[in-house]
């Protein structure tokens, strides 16, 4: 018998603290599988952000740093500029990246910092109990939008891939999802490409991964994967926004 699926070496044995059915754990595994497959574990430094994944430094089996809320891209910049030989990635949620850390992510992307960002979008602040996030859907109820997100009052959800894609410099931007096996397989492909571009020292790479939050959405894990498909995917289209090849050939993104 040949084992064809097991825990990647780049994931520690520590059981994860995430709620049952939360797809953070899947995304962690995809990153770890990519680190294994590209043989990067021993020269990678991951940056854990503040949010549900605040303890991810216990799960990624490589050197890690814990950033303060929203600042992971700045910490990553510091590491990459200090030691360009290292592979650096940040693992951030929507509150961390799109709210308090918006300036940091936009400027890291615009400088074209050669590290990889794994951005998990589950439309809420999970760790603190389900408050509204920049990515909360119109009408979505959270603990700080008890009557549902009123777009007339606080605007529409933020689409990070589209924002970063409007910048000239960042080379690889793709949005994927982790709610179905098919999406998960495609998500891994994107994460792998992102890290490959970094290995080649080519460009800033950004993968936004739609993710579920059963606890704070008040849904069972499976229903949450369906809610994501029916509500988030239409608003956050799953596609590639930029690749360095296109930008270099004066493709659709070069301007």
């Amino acid at each position: 018998m040949k084992t064809i699926f097991k825990r990647p070496e780049s994931l520690t044995l520590t059981p994860m603290h995430y709620c049952p059915g939360c797809t953070h754990g899947i995304i962690h595994r995809l990153v770890a599988e990519v680190l294994d497959e590209l043989d990067l574990r021993e020269r990678t430094v991951g940056i854990a952000s503040v949010g549900c994944s605040v303890l991810s430094y216990n799960y990624f089996n490589c050197d890690m740093q814990e950033a303060s809320h929203g600042r992971a891209p700045a910490v990553a910049t510091g590491i990459k500029r200090a030691r360009p030989d290292l592979i650096v990635f940040t693992y951030q949620g929507d509150g961390d990246l799109a709210s308090i850390g918006m300036a940091e992510i936009v400027h890291a992307a615009n400088r074209g910092e050669k590290f990889t960002v794994v951005f998990v979008n589950n439309t809420v602040y999970g760790m603190t109990g389900g408050q509204m996030a920049p990515t909360t859907m119109p009408g979505q109820v959270t603990t700080t939008t008890p009557r549902g997100r009123d777009v007339d009052d606080i605007g529409y959800p933020v689409r990070m891939c589209e924002i970063l894609a409007s910048l000239r410099t960042p080379g690889f931007i793709e949005r994927v999802a982790a709610n179905t096996p098919q999406h998960i397989i495609r998500a891994k492909r994107a994460i792998k490409k992102a890290f490959q571009y970094q290995v080649e020292g080519r460009c800033f790479s950004f993968v936004e991964c739609l993710s579920t939050c059963p606890t704070n959405w008040g849904l069972s894990p499976y229903k949450a994967t369906q809610w994501l498909e029916e509500n988030m995917v239409p608003y956050y289209p799953l596609k590639n926004f930029k690749t360095p090849e296109e930008s270099e050939e004066g493709g659709k993104n070069a301007d």
């Binding site: 018998m1 825990r7 998960i184």
Partner: peptide, 21 residues
């Protein structure tokens, strides 16, 4: 491997026979 792929807690391992990978 869909089960293992979709497991958030890396709780599932899958092995297959040698006759056809």
């Amino acid at each position: 491997c869909f089960c293992a792929i979709t497991c958030p807690d890396v709780a599932i391992e899958v092995a297959v026979g040698d006759n056809k990978d």
